[in-house]
Design a protein around this nucleic acid. Structure first.
Lengths: 125, 125
DNA sequence: TATCTTAGATTACAACTGTAATCATAACTA
DNA sequence: TAGTTATGATTACAGTTGTAATCTAAGATA
């Protein structure tokens, strides 16, 4: 049931999660880094609307686009699906891979330890 | 430069990482859970060979297939790419999402803490 | 040896993606 | 009001993917 948003489309979602509603022109502007033609970005907006993950209100001849799904929920979905597909659900292996392969700063390590401490006690086991 | 292996193809890789070399027939057997036709599995093997991530030695008329890439390396690649594409490289957010959204057992929490402790001191930062 | 199997190679085909260009039309401008 | 513009809608087109079926030829079998 997982939401189907392609790689390229995700970049558009990210823009809208940062700020919305936006016109297509504004979305195009904020996607300068990607060097997509304005036409390409419009295509993505269109597809995202058809997929039901972006909505719009009309404002004269133009549309004001907004995300129709929550970023957190989307990330949780994507993460779950990544865990299942790549690590076959083995979360220990997934976490080990990330922790092992990334250079983590002291700050990041502390942050993560904090997360674990908060978690401790809450999950009944 | 990341390795291009599709969702369905990953299941074939998983089989070969568990045991290899295997004939196509053996791969098909081990993929019973997926209800793919034998033809479909053969197609995947073929594509994987063309992509250079599976190799084979001939054994008479049949091939003995083996992975041509390391599972660990593949997982690291996939993870890196997932982090970049979905979390735009923000590893704290990624880890927080996993830790928050999954029910983690005491065992898993302890394991993860162990990882972090090991890591501590090694990363110079 | 002639025939049957069966394994890999080739071909099929629709949906999804990346990447746009063209079309139709509503709104702005002269 | 008539022409210009810019926006969303439609169309394009090749590559990837999921999901096979068909073709070809080398072994196995009668």
């Amino acid at each position: 049931m997982s939401i189907r948003v392609s790689e390229a489309e995700k970049n558009v979602m990210d823009i809208l999660w940062q700020e919305s509603p936006l016109t297509s022109t504004e979305v195009v502007e904020r996607l300068q880094t990607q060097d997509w033609s304005e036409k390409t970005v419009k295509t993505f907006l269109n597809r995202l609307v058809k997929k039901g993950v972006v909505t719009f209100q009309k404002d004269g001849r133009r549309y004001l686009y907004s995300p129709a799904i929550e970023r957190d929920e989307f990330l949780a979905d994507e993460s779950e699906s990544f865990l299942d597909k790549v690590f076959k659900g083995n979360i220990k292996e997934l976490l080990a891979t990330f922790v092992d392969n990334k250079q983590l700063s002291k700050d990041e390590l502390d942050y993560l330890k904090g997360l674990l401490d908060d978690k401790e006690g809450r999950d009944v086991k």
